[in-house]
Each structure stands twice: as C-alpha cells, then as structure tokens.
Amino acid sequence: MVPDKLTTSAQVKQTQETLLRLRVALNRTLCGKEAVIEHVLTCLFARGHLLIEDLPGLGKTTLAKGLAQAIGGIMARVQCTPDLLPSDITGFSIFNQQTRAFEFQRGPVFADVLLIDEINRATPRTQSALLEAMAERQITVDNQRYTLSDTFFVIATQNPCEHHGTYPLPEAQLDRFGMRLEIGYASKQHEVEILQNDVIIDLARRREPLSAILEPGMLLYFQEQVARIQVVPCIQQYLVDLAHATRQHPQVHLGLSPRGLLMWQRLAKARAFLQGRHFVIPDDLLHVAQPVLSIHLGMESNADNILVAIIQSVPVPIIDS
C-alpha cells in the first residue's frame, strides 16, 4: 500500500529501504557504476528523460532493461535507423475489415520505459515525433490524442564516435531531456566481477528475470514526494544566478532555458529525496549540474572547464542575513 505522504519516521525508513533495494538491484545490473545509477534514479524521480551518450557495449541497453524491470513497468525498445518512421514509434491506425473501422495500433511509446537506441540515426522527422511525447506525455495521431503512462521515461542512447549516416539531435529535442550521461568503462576490478557474474549466474538469470522492486504505483508516489520537496528562496535565487551566468558566459552560445531551469530544480529535488532530505541544499544543485548543463547549454569545446568556471563565478548562498 502506498501512503499519501511521508509523515512518520517509519514511512521514511520504509522509503529509504525501498530505494536501497532499487539501488542494489540496479548496481547488480550495471556493475561498478553507482554514480551513473544515482543520476538515472534522480532523472527518473524528477520525471525527466535521459540521454546516454557513450560507446557501444558499455551497458546502455542493459541499464534500461534493468531499470524497467526494477520499477515494474513495461519496457519497449526502438532501434533507430534512417528508415524508421514516426508511426513506428507512436503507432498507427489500420482498417479492420470486420468492424469496418480504423483501429489504432499502439506503438512502443506507450511503454513505461522507452529505450531509443542510437537516436541520432533516426531522421529528424522521426526524432520530432518524440517531442510531444517527452514534453507532454501524450501523442497525437490522426487528430486523436493519446495519453501516455504517468511514469513515461525515455532513455535514449547515441554513439558519439560514428557520425556517418547520423542526424544530430536538434536543440529543441535536447532541451527536452533532463540529463546527458556517460557510462564509461568499468574499472578492472568491476570488469572481473562482470566476467564472473556472466559465468556463474548467467543461466539462472536467464531463467528467472529480475523481479520488480517497486510496487505498482510506487514510482508515481515517489515522483509526487519529490514534487513536495522544499526549495527555499535563496536556493532558487542561486539557481537563477547560475542560469544567468550561463547566459553571460562568452563561450556559451546557448544559455540555460527556463525549461532547463525548471528541470534543474526538479532534479535537485529528486536528489534531495534520494538523500533522504525534505529540502534542497546547494549541493543537490551542484551534484546534478554537470549532466544537466551539458545537455541544456550550447557550448564550444572544453565544456567541463566552462561549467566549472560558471559554477565558480556564482557564490553559494550561505549566510545572507
């Protein structure tokens, strides 16, 4: 049973235990990437969408599948190619000769977790089909509006190395993502662990898939709890100052948009929730700053240095009175 609000310490404890189990399950799926998993959960609870940009074979699909299984939702996967059509994602209407009517065949977008593999291989037309779904959690086909899952979550991947036959994501599309993450190679120790797991429990896991950690409706409940996290005015002012700093930096040609600003606040709240706090502190903002700003800002090279410079240019609100 899902409580309405975290009111008692027992409920808080129960929530933390659930989150811990979720972390453990995902860590088992993607070995040695605790920080990435923390960001993924942050993005999930903040109702954002995730863009994973990394080389092939680093566990992007595994992570998406594991997340879908852990939250107990339906997972769908779309492998993007240049000939992929928007209807391949959203669905299409077919004529039923028996009923003499058009029937809508739902596409993969109606899943809880949608993995869009190599999104930059799809044509801009197909990429645009995702705009409405990601921003408003609904799609419109044949003038008919269809509502998506309340916990609709997009994990898109793209390969930064191969550029032949790809279509870079437009800024409008990028702005609808909450974070851009890089998984990166695991350490030697974790790679050994990955190999051992593959030998020992491969067969067992194939037979018995990962069970759902969250009860039905629990994800939505967590997302509502995140929305209730407090943000004091000085933190919001700090956030706005940071946004202004991104717009004034000479090497940033596209500053943080208001949508990006809202997303940053939601992600900071989600991070505070994951840390077991009911209020946001500056560290929450700073913790998610890199993945948020890297996707919402238009920057030239040395993006990391620019982000550091921007963050260092704004004083953290400590004592303002």
């Binding site: 502190i281 560290d283 700073l286 963050i311 704004v314 953290v316 004592i319």
Partner: peptide, 27 residues
C-alpha cells in the same frame, strides 16, 4: 545556528583559509 556558522567561517577567514564563495559547506 547561523551565528555559530558565521563565527566558524570568520575564524577560518581570520587564520587565512576562508571558505571560497563558490563552494557549499559540504564541498
């Protein structure tokens, strides 16, 4: 708490290791 924090920050500043403005307390 705020007065205590102010005093701690002042002490750090007086001895020559002030808290950088861009760093949060935890950082």
């Amino acid at each position: 708490v705020i007065a205590t924090l102010r005093l701690l920050l002042q002490r750090a500043q007086w001895v020559g290791c002030p808290k950088p403005a861009h760093l949060s307390l935890a950082c």
